[in-house]
Design a protein around this nucleic acid. Sequence first.
DNA 1: CTGTTAGCGCTTTCAT
DNA 2: ATGAAAGCGCTAACAG
Lengths: 363, 363
Amino acid sequence: MRMTTLSTDEIRIFVLGELLVRKMQKRPTLKDVAAYSQVSIISASRALRGLENVSPELRAKVEAAADALGYSRNPIAGSLRGQSSDLVVVLVPAMTNNVFPAVVDGIYAGLSQTGLGVVLGLTGYGIESEERVLRNMLAWSPAGLVLSGSEHTDDTEAMLAEFDGPIVEVMDIDGETERSQVGLSHLEAGRMMADHFLKCGYRRIGYIGAWGEQPLRSRKRRISFEEELRRNGVELVGRFIHPDPSSVSVGAESFDRLIEEHSDLEAIFFANDDLALGAMSNALDRGLSIPDDMAFAGFNGLDVCDVVRPHLTTIVTPRFEVGCLAGKIIADTFRTGENKGPQQRRELALELRQGGTTRLRNA
Amino acid sequence: MRMTTLSTDEIRIFVLGELLVRKMQKRPTLKDVAAYSQVSIISASRALRGLENVSPELRAKVEAAADALGYSRNPIAGSLRGQSSDLVVVLVPAMTNNVFPAVVDGIYAGLSQTGLGVVLGLTGYGIESEERVLRNMLAWSPAGLVLSGSEHTDDTEAMLAEFDGPIVEVMDIDGETERSQVGLSHLEAGRMMADHFLKCGYRRIGYIGAWGEQPLRSRKRRISFEEELRRNGVELVGRFIHPDPSSVSVGAESFDRLIEEHSDLEAIFFANDDLALGAMSNALDRGLSIPDDMAFAGFNGLDVCDVVRPHLTTIVTPRFEVGCLAGKIIADTFRTGENKGPQQRRELALELRQGGTTRLRNA
DNA sequence: CTGTTAGCGCTTTCAT
DNA sequence: ATGAAAGCGCTAACAG
């Protein structure tokens, strides 16, 4: 161990540093780090950011100082100076809906260790509401945007076109757009279930939706479901769209309504698992035998589809994986500083296929 | 309609304004609004913020300008100047867990129309992870903090003590703290279920948990559950804590394990509904009659408890309402600029009782 | 009631 | 390789 003689100046600064460490109420700034390590502020900045033109000694000194002072960068100041913040804005309809929680967890996973934070915006369904929330969020100069769905208002489209940074739309890949999309085709999902019903020999088929078909995605599934049936010579017997948001009880109630008019249905496709589970419970209460008297199918692939008797037929969606890939795309674009082209996106999309695919379960 | 003669200067500014409206790539700043309305920047700021000392004419002029230019405040700049941002940091373990999505929706509801944004931090269970995430988030100088649970590391406690703004802990009110807490007593919940089991006449009782009892809240429930049983002369026959996170399948697997050793249990209390549902499904597969052969009880009060046969006994928790109240407390403190004392908090807490209470369902 | 001055903490020029 | 100066957009603090 080597003793060092400190100059008075160094001592002064050292003492200052110690004081800073001990009783500074406010968080240490770059200025403090610079003073402590006796370099200019900008040098401290460069060193801490790991830029090229910094001597190893200076870097070491600064890093030691930052460490000693417990310095952490103020992202707000950095964001003001630079063009964008370290925040990723994520816009989803709501959390209590069984699809977006997993997506959000996935986004986190995909974004992990990038230093990017997630600002969550709840749009409550409805693209006008989405527009309002987005306008608000844009004020944060986000580093990236994750939206749900591919239907937006014209004003939203304009804002997105103007936005300079990665944009990923999740859970719907049917829209016509130049933007990155990660998710599944709801048109395909609708067809998938129609084909399944037909293969099972069902001919008298019904449909139940909710919330006036807000999230537009459910409407896409219904439309393509109906079209695929029709293409095979089967006309949908009846449908009921409940005005309220999806839930188990709304499913049960909707079942009552639909059965009122069409008591002889062989199978019903639901906009999601919650509705289907509620209806199934109702049907069991009525003494119906499932699937012999009537078959039920939902959408999403919730775990609980496997705990009801009989198991609920559903379409599993790779929600976590979708979020994960979305996060990775944002992170990657952020890191490299440039938007990826379609080719690159396709490569990333391949990863997704390995993680999980949209598929039937309990069929 | 009155024609006005514009001075050359006014024309110049007017034209500048028009240009700004039309082809400005960057978002208009306060400076642009000030130029457009021909007042000083600070006056524009004051007018827009609705401060007192502003003449109606000036205010009108500025508001018109802001409207014409499509101005919206840059919260980043404001945050840098002031001490805190307009962001509320919300720290929860994970979204895919059936309790926090509702809480987050509630927080949004409680925060609505305050202009406060929500930065979501996922701590993935474990208070060390929480500490790390919090340290990171604190860099955003949040306007408020919402944490889940009341157990924290010492360093977290230190950060919280230093934090100058409202802090609310949600979903657990058992901890010893000076901070605002909104949620439920897990000790009470455990007792509640023990009493219910005893009232039903069950004596050979088991318990199943998961994730090594991470979120500590589940452990509290178990402990008080066991204690209440013991207080009534009943000793817990057996328990199994699965190392993996809760899920339907983990519940089913844990059931296997517990039954291996104790096949003659009369009733099992689970750390949550997911585990219970999985186990119930398993038990049905084994040909057990529920609840005659064996009774099951979960925790949370998920909707799906009502769609399984027989309905799953559970404890309903007011998750949305808890989040809502937490949001309101933050919003209120933010608006008035001062932390409320315990008295005030108790008043706010009364609201909660009206919204929803922790109670037994399907008992 | 309105404006001028200064500065939040950081980073992008532009020197040296 | 290092530093000085300027300024991001906004708002307290002080004039007038």
